[in-house]
Design a protein around this nucleic acid. Structure first.
Length: 269
DNA sequence: GCGACAG
DNA sequence: ATCTTGTCGC
């Protein structure tokens, strides 16, 4: 197994990471509607961590958007490239996610990731960053509203409420005050909503329609559920250990790893 | 200065 | 994200 390392130019601290976001933000494309819901391919990406071993495992699972059947899967394991800092999640997750996406045998189609796109303090969340780096259409689906707020929404599946930035927010891209940066979307009756925002080359209406199509039975999209299971699996299967401080006496064998799962397994349910 | 804060 | 038993409900 190959261990993914962060690119040589990966930012080393929070200040540089924010500068990278500010530099890439203008490359986000917001005026494309994106692929129509219910057709084509949809790929879920997710990441799992093992701080003890300094490991991160990413998974990408491609589904048929119409049937939600698994079409392809890929995983990647790497060293943790950045600490968790709210607003800088992309720098922690992207190296492994990019590696997983690159080893997919098929085209990803629309990519769905955990977290935010435009609903971000600097309007450049994980989904935006992934979109700019790959050129793929990407949306973000988060489980929490982060720094954003919204009015109450109806109890039915499909009910929504606009996600708005707190008053006095920075608005780095010059958006209007009260701009809708994302949407709280109820995917199951009476259940806490998910928070959808646009990443790259997809409109918000389309993004929400896709998410509804991906949530016939559960609160979270099938893409996210499948990717979540797969990356945890890959992390558990990784046999890499933290490279100990090189001691003169005993030559430490280069850390090896077991092959990560790379093919569909029998549907447990 | 203090608290809040996607995963 | 991750650490974790029991418990309520279909």
């Amino acid at each position: 197994m190959k261990i993914i390392e962060a690119p040589a130019d990966w930012p080393a601290d929070a200040a540089r990471a924010r500068a990278v976001q500010d530099g890439l933000r203008a490359r986000v494309i917001l005026d494309e509607p994106g692929p129509p819901p219910g057709t084509g391919l949809v790929t879920g990406v997710d990441v799992a961590y093992d701080d003890e071993r300094d490991l991160v495992a990413a998974a990408a699972v491609v589904l048929d958007a119409g049937t939600l059947a698994v079409v392809a899967e890929a995983t990647a394991v790497g060293r943790i490239a950045f600490p968790y800092v709210p607003g800088l999640l992309a720098f922690r997750e992207l190296p492994a996610v990019l590696a997983a996406l690159e080893s997919l045998p098929s085209d990803p189609g629309l990519v769905v990731c955990d977290g935010y796109g435009r609903a971000h303090p600097r309007r450049f969340g994980l989904a935006s960053h992934l979109g700019v780096l790959t050129g793929l259409p990407v949306i973000g689906v988060a489980k929490n509203p982060f720094v954003f707020s919204h009015d109450a929404l109806g109890p039915e599946r499909g009910d929504t409420a606009a996600l708005r930035a707190p008053a006095g927010d920075r608005r780095p891209d010059g958006e209007a005050v009260d701009e809708e940066v994302g949407r709280a979307l109820r995917t199951q009756r009476g259940v806490k909503p998910v928070y959808v925002s646009v990443g790259h080359r997809v409109g918000l209406d389309n993004a929400c329609a896709h998410v509804l199509g991906l949530t016939p039975d559960y609160r979270l999209p099938e893409t996210t559920r499948r990717a979540d299971r797969l990356c945890r699996q890959a992390l558990a299967a990784a046999t890499v250990t933290v490279s100990a401080a090189p001691r003169p006496g005993s030559g430490s064998p280069p850390t090896g790893a077991a092959p990560a799962a790379h093919r569909p397994s029998p549907p447990p349910e």
